[in-house]
Design a protein around this nucleic acid. Sequence first.
DNA 1: TGAAATGTTGGGGCG
DNA 2: ACGCCCCAACATTTC
Length: 489
Amino acid sequence: MTEPIIVWLRNDLRLSDNLALYQANKKGVPVLLLYVLDDEAAGTWRMGSTSRWWLHYSLESLKTDLQKLGSDVILRRGSTVDVIIEISRQLGVKEIYCSKQFEPWARELEQILHQKLEEYGITLNCCAGQLLHAPGKLCTKIGKSFQVYTPFLRALTATDIRIPKPAPSNLLKFTRLPQSDTLKDWCLIPIAPDWAGGMRKAWQPGETGAQKRLNSFLEKSAATYHINRDRPKQPYCTASTSKLSPHLHFGEITPAICWHAAKLKAAQDPTHSEGLEIFLKELAWREFSYHLIYHSTDLPAEPFRKRFVSFPWQPPSKVRSTQLKAWQQGKTGYPIIDAGLRELWTTGWMHNRVRMIAASFLTKHLLIPWQQGQDWFWDCLVDANLASNSASWQWVSGCGADAAPYFRIFNPVIQGQKFDADGTYVRFWVPEIAKIPNKYIHTPWLCPKHMLDMYNIKIGVTYPLPIVDHKQARDRALEAYQFLKSTTP
DNA sequence: TGAAATGTTGGGGCG
DNA sequence: ACGCCCCAACATTTC
């Protein structure tokens, strides 16, 4: 009886372009797929409730796909190291394949596992795949890591992107399957209360859903992506953006697949090339985030630009907690911000432009530390990704790599008027002010009283007054940022 | 992948 | 006819 190879699945819940699976399967011996839910290893960054919701359906979808090949995935909870060693010894496994993952805790886990397995004479093969290039590979001419996005992008596009591997057409069956949990055991989806209605409406987790999303993006949205990506219009519908982020995060599709598909489409149809150029740049931002967290493992906790360590954030207080809560619940009194936070709460996702506006508001108008926003996003986002989340929060608040300058403070009114000119987005997510005409949809507090009376809207009662005055908040933020000038970089 | 303040220009109304 | 003022519209700079 041949002993099987274990393919330890992590954020690579797919069959196509899965290098670990592909290489293991080439060996011609039975392949045992294993997923371990290990909250301990992830520590602070254990999956949030929304990610867990996604995970449930992503695994379910994977199971369905595997069943078509007569296979399945073993589910276990607990310490990854213990589980893998237990199963390996039980079945006499000599070789394990997995995808490399680059979160600091995941790298640590990989290292520990590697050592432990060595003691038992078991080999751990970590394959690349979740990124276009292994972080650490791209560096400047003098061998340093990139601090700025544009040169990083140049280096990235100058390098060949690997060709995706096909999904295996058959897997050797393994009959002596070890004990497995069921998805139900893990209680990943909410029962009472069931808060996931909006998520179900918005998403189809899993590899099939990911491929559908990519295809519909390439067909329907890519041509105008460079223009429409900044406009958060239609809720739930195929948006002007790709909405691939959660699929990419869970590895239901790889950036390499997206990259080549976009390149191919642009070559076939030149009218799509301008939009697709921008799409590729967005994939590169994702890479850049991983590049940053690879070289700065404290990125989720500490400002990249160290002079921000002593930045005068608003100290914890009752006022600050109240403001944070208003922001989280979408009750700041600024329609575009409230719409964004409510979209996040309902669907587990927020449009990119709105993420920037909302993050700028939290860190600059409210002077609340970016980590607080990061934590909220971590728990609410279906695409919660340690690298992107921390790099982006730092970017917005001015302390990140190649960050937005500190004085770039979004005016939530102007941003709303610019990118949600007809108020479609705001009206959907903030229905209590939906009847207000366009002219005042982003400034309901300026709407003439007789109109508000007509619509039965009471600003300060049925919809909040702005929790801070824009001008005052802006001046306060600029003042707070003043000290950075005198500090050495 | 800003916004606001400040500076400049040029057309039109007007004496 | 001409200068003056007003103020968009656009450009520059400052935060």
